[in-house]
Design a protein around this nucleic acid. Structure first.
Length: 804
RNA sequence: GCCCCGGUAGUCCAACGGCAGAGACAAUGUGCUCAAACCACAUCCAGUGUGGGUUCGAAUCCCACCCGGGGCACCA
């Protein structure tokens, strides 16, 4: 567009304007959050948070979208008198840096911090209202010091522990994964490799201790979190009510099962235990042991992918033992099968083939009895029967009502280098010994390139000098834990660290946490719907119970923005359909790109770059900017004598904008601003003329509204309107309620709900007057056509509906 | 299979239960131009996925179904 060498009256140069204002903003430092004001309670606080980026290369379209949207709200809240905390940092531990380091024979920090600097300068140019004084990087020892400290605190509470268990193993990344990091199709969420199982001793966070509360408090978030995320969390936690029922077995401990249908207990004609559970081995008779072993071998051959197919034929093997149905007293056979999962419930079920499709299929295949408990055709009060059944098993000591969760504990160990070391020392005498707090942080040893190659055990193990230490308790030879923490640990508490990011003596200042917390608005990607958000919620609840904070949930409101796609497809290197942010910024300027992203759709919807027009956005910004050059009245002109029609548009626009911003409908705010620009243009060219005070008022309102989305253009307008920078520090215009009242409104006259006439009436017309006017209207009289009027509904001053 | 969210002009999207259209993209036309682009102005375009129901009145509320997106899933 630079080739259009138009006169300065008609165009401004977006890039020149960017160069012009950046240093001015730098100097004004207008976005620093004032702790003192919030601690003193002088101003209401607003803690706005955007998910911080992983430093892989430069910023991309997705970052541009989320940051632009979030900036609208933060800037608006500042205008409305809130003390705003809007921090940014980097989630800078993680695999891409490590893989790059291996490839280029360097240290992961080299890649990481170079990318951070690149992204930092892009952020600056993008004109966001961040408080950069709070910038943090999770890979800094000053940060992971406190990640380690929190780990130790959680361990003290029994919320971090080590156990041996079959775990998810990614053969590509050569590390274990949490349940949340394995996709529904059994692949690694990071690299796409098929995840396998491995038996390992690993560290876990006891997320299950909070399963009930994590589930219950979703009710409180229902209205302020985007619905799909609440739904995803509910499903992930997977609460189900039912009962534990125990079945006696001769010569063995009773088998306990979990069931949601205790009412069907009398129809339980056999039991099934997970073939790969220890229980199967314990129960099997010597005669059947070989059969079980053969079956197990068969099961292990089939991959996890196969096991996910729900339409596979049922397989299983009789274990040769029987158990006693606690209600009927009947002896029923116990089988092992792979359709029962070892790690859900108790790893064993009571099979009720009459009322469960899977059990029926199994019974039909192996000729087991099928005994109906009730008739499907007849009415059946399930809830009452469930309660009765629970009472019955409780009475005879064979069970109790219980709640079961799908949620597992969070596996946090990782066999990789670029993460926070687990601050534990293993001593042959004293066992697990926490690193004393005054010796934190446990800093990563210097490793680079080939030393980091994944080999199935932690790279840290190769740093002999680092690993071998004396036991803090007995002083004898001991070794450090060589695993690092899942990077999701780092991001589970970063919003606390922003409160006092430079505090060397504590993770965060509790007084500031009380003053600023919780986060009032959180914006991020829906890919974190379960992972990050669930973990952060868990950390928050655990920290509350340790007395560190006094709130229950970290994020009062949560919204996830859509994805920027191209031509109906996700942007990707392999499809070659990526839209480079840098190129768009070069071509259209920062403001036009930001405006395009905000205007395209509601924040949570996807944006197809093929559907939007950054050129159109640039055009609009030029039109808006031109208004500021046309205003001829001096700054400070009293608008009250201005053209009333235009004043009404201005005040109505502002009033609606406030309402829309409060409900995150940023795209509509832009549309309303466009309307105001159009109305002002018309007023200048063919209305009250450029010298009218209402024109100045309108142009200033445009500048202020625009500053939420297009800060450079708005700043330029503000200056041309004769004001000192920065428009971000201007006062939000006060809406005059008198100007929101219409002089005359159009009342619609409907007959049978169909519009048949219109009347210009006063807004405070009485219902009786309006009805009379409607019935007297010639068009209405004609439409009624002499039919008797049965009923008249009047909604003054807008509508009359006549029923004939 | 269970659970969430959505379906309005060619496209993206607006519309406290009350005139279906705010804003934009695209298209078309006119002006500007030698011409095109740019720019300016104007025009065009749907009866709201389908079928019922509630109501004086439904895009909006309720029920069923269809389609699209998402979550969970041999979860007992």
């Amino acid at each position: 567009m630079s080739e259009t060498a138009a006169s300065p009256e008609v165009h401004y140069d977006a890039h020149a304007v960017e160069e012009k204002w950046l240093p001015v903003w730098e100097r004004l430092d207008a976005f620093r959050a004032d702790d003192a004001a919030v601690l003193a309670g002088d101003k209401p606080k607003f803690y706005g948070l955007t998910m911080f980026p992983y430093p892989s290369g430069d910023l991309h379209m997705g970052h541009a979208e989320v940051m632009a949207l979030h900036d609208v709200l933060c800037r608006y809240k500042r205008f409305r008198g809130f003390e705003v905390l809007n921090p940014m940092g980097w989630d800078s531990f993680g695999l891409p840096a490590e893989n790059a380091a291996i490839k280029n024979d360097e240290h992961p920090a080299t890649y990481t911090y170079a990318n951070i600097e690149t992204q930092f300068s892009s952020f600056k140019k993008y004109g966001l209202s961040f408080d950069w004084s709070r910038r943090l990087h999770t890979s800094d020892p000053e940060y992971y010091h406190w990640t380690q400290w929190i780990f130790l605190k959680l361990r003290e509470q029994g919320l971090a522990y080590r156990k041996n268990s079959p775990v998810n193993w990614c053969p590509n990344d050569q590390t274990v994964l949490a349940n949340e990091q394995v996709l529904a199709d059994g692949t690694c969420e990071r690299c796409g490799a098929v995840v396998t199982k491995k038996e390992l001793t690993q560290w876990y966070f006891r997320t299950t201790a909070y399963a009930q509360e994590l589930y219950d408090s979703l009710d409180d978030l229902q209205d302020t979190w985007i619905a799909k995320v609440v739904n995803a969390q509910r499903n992930w936690i997977g609460r189900s009510e039912g009962a534990h029922v125990s079945f006696d077995v001769a010569g063995h401990e009773p088998i306990t099962v979990f069931t949601t249908r205790p009412d069907t207990l009398v129809g339980a004609t056999f039991m099934v235990v997970a073939a790969d559970a220890k229980l199967a081995q314990e129960l099997v008779t010597p005669e059947r042991a070989q059969a079980l072993e053969d079956y197990l071998a068969e099961v292990r051959k089939s991959s996890d992918i196969d096991r996910l197919a729900t339409d596979r034929p049922k397989t299983g093997v009789d274990l040769g033992v029987t158990a006693t149905n606690p209600l009927t007293g009947e002896e029923i056979p116990v089988w092992a099968a792979d359709y029962v999962l070892a790690d859900y419930g108790t790893g064993a079920i009571m099979a009720v083939p009459a009322h469960d499709d899977r059990d029926r299929e199994f019974a039909e295949k192996f000729g087991l009895p099928i005994v109906p408990v009730y008739d499907d055709e007849q009415p059946y009060d399930k809830a009452a029967e469930v309660s009765r059944a629970i009472a019955a098993v409780e009475a005879n000591g064979h069970g109790e009502g219980t709640v079961n969760f799908r949620l597992r504990d969070w596996l946090l160990s990782r066999q990789r280098y670029w993460g926070a070391p687990i601050p534990i020392i293993h001593c042959p005498v004293d066992g697990e010994v926490p690193v004393p707090e005054d010796q934190l942080p446990v800093v990563l040893p210097e490793l680079r390139g080939a030393d980091l190659k994944p080999k199935g055990t932690s790279p840290l193990g190769a740093a002999a000098e680092w690993v071998n230490v004396s036991c803090p308790t007995c002083g004898g030879p001991a070794t450090r834990d060589t695993d690092t923490m899942d990077t999701f640990v780092d991001s589970s508490w970063y919003f606390f660290r922003y409160l006092s990011p430079h505090d060397g003596s504590q993770a965060f200042d509790p007084a500031l946490a009380k003053a600023w917390g919780p986060v009032d608005f959180y914006l991020g990607g829906s890919e974190h719907a379960v992972l990050h958000l669930l973990y952060a919620r868990f950390f928050t609840k655990a920290m509350r119970d340790m007395g560190l904070i006094d709130w229950d949930e970290p994020f009062s409101a949560y919204l996830s923005q859509g994805t920027v796609i191209n031509n109906g497809h996700k942007m990707s290197k392999s499809l070659g359909n990526g839209v480079a942010l840098g190129a768009q910024l070069d071509e259209f300027g920062v403001d036009a790109v930001r405006l395009t992203l905000v205007f395209a759709s509601p924040p949570e919807d996807n944006i197809d770059w093929a559907d939007v027009s950054p050129a159109g956005s640039a055009k609009f910004l030029q039109r808006a900017w031109r208004l500021s050059g046309d205003v001829t009245s001096p700054a400070g002109t009293d608008p009250s004598t201005g053209d009333v029609a235009l004043r009404k548009v201005t005040h109505k626009t502002l009033s609606e904008a406030e309402h829309l911003l409060d409900s995150y409908r940023f795209n509509v705010v832009v549309a309303r601003t466009m309307e105001l620009v159009n109305a002002t243009r018309k007023a200048i060219d063919s209305g009250c003329g450029p010298e009218d005070p209402a024109v100045r008022e309108a142009a200033e309102a445009v500048a202020i509204l625009l500053s939420l989305v297009a800060p450079y253009t708005a700043e330029e307008m503000w200056e041309r309107l004769g004001h000192q920078p920065s428009v971000a520090q201007a006062a939000w215009p006060t809406v005059d309620p008198a100007l929101l009242v219409e002089d005359a409104v159009t009342a619609v006259v409907q007959i049978q709900g169909k519009v048949r006439g219109r009347l210009e009436v006063s807004p405070d017309i009485s219902e009786a007057d309006l009805e009379a006017a409607a019935l007297a209207d010639p068009a209405v009289v004609k439409a009624i056509d002499g039919r008797p009027v049965r009923k008249v509904i009047v909604r003054a001053p807008k509508l009359v509906n006549i029923v004939v």
